[in-house]
Design a protein around this nucleic acid. Structure first.
Length: 228
DNA sequence: ATCCAGGACT
DNA sequence: AGTCCAGGAT
């Protein structure tokens, strides 16, 4: 790594290294924007495996559609999504999102895509139960808008590399990327997907496996930043 | 049988 | 700071 690289080049190089090693992620492929939005709520504080069970339940009962889901009593919806955890709360959040969807997006999440990114973000953020990460996930993965999703994994990787403080808040972390990267939905989509994969398989919470990590070479520039 | 990881709201 | 939760790991 050249000694004084710009942040843009550093972030792009880290991206390229992950992509070279892991290949493209094809995130949220066969799903409709609606399914992506539902998944974004369900995956709050829970791993994707549990979310899949919940989505399977919704699908199996024909409730993975706005009207059907909205017609379901909270208790029944909660029961179907039970495997994803926090099911009572998430049933309500799902309903909030669906209600908002009806009168803001004319019932179709895809309509978000024609809005200005920040307008879409603000609108999403106004629904109770949709915080910054969920809003960005829906805007990017369901609507294809150029917004960068950050999360606990992003914070872990980049703080361990000594690039940001461990207590960096959501928007500061998001700006760290968005201030210097080209606002390209495909880049943002793949970048976040790669971060998640690296965090789960190498930059684990307890004991990171830095030796064979796709980002191993980037620890050199920050002798102590990495550690763990 | 306990522990742990993981967003958003009150 | 406390609450909401299941499923996988230990």
């Amino acid at each position: 790594m050249p000694p004084h690289m710009s942040r843009a080049d550093l972030l792009l190089n880290m991206y390229q290294s992950m992509l070279d090693r892991l290949g493209p992620s094809h995130w949220w492929p066969g799903e409709t924007p609606f399914e992506v939005a539902v998944g974004a709520i369900l995956t709050q504080n829970t791993n994707w495996g549990n979310v899949e069970r919940a989505i399977a339940n919704l699908k199996a009962t024909g409730n993975l559609a706005p009207d059907a889901m909205l017609a379901l009593p909270d208790a029944e919806l909660a029961e179907l999504i039970r495997p994803s955890g926090y099911y009572n709360m998430k049933a309500k959040r799902l309903k909030q999102l669906l209600l908002w969807l009806q009168d803001t997006c004319d019932g179709d999440i895809a309509n978000l895509g024609s809005m200005e990114v920040n307008a879409a973000r603000t609108a999403l953020l106004s629904v109770k139960g949709v915080g910054p990460e969920t809003a960005d996930s829906i805007a990017l993965y369901a609507a294809g808008l150029p917004t960068f999703v950050v999360d606990a994994y992003t914070l872990r990787i980049y703080s361990r590399h000594g690039l940001i403080p461990e207590d960096t808040d959501y928007h500061t972390l998001r700006d760290y990327f968005m201030d210097v990267l080209p606002h390209d939905p495909h880049l943002f989509n793949e970048y976040h997907a790669l971060i998640v994969r690296v965090a789960k398989d190498w930059c684990k919470k307890g004991t990171p496996r830095c030796e064979d990590c796709p980002l191993a070479e980037f620890l050199d520039t920050h002798p102590n930043g990495g550690r763990a």
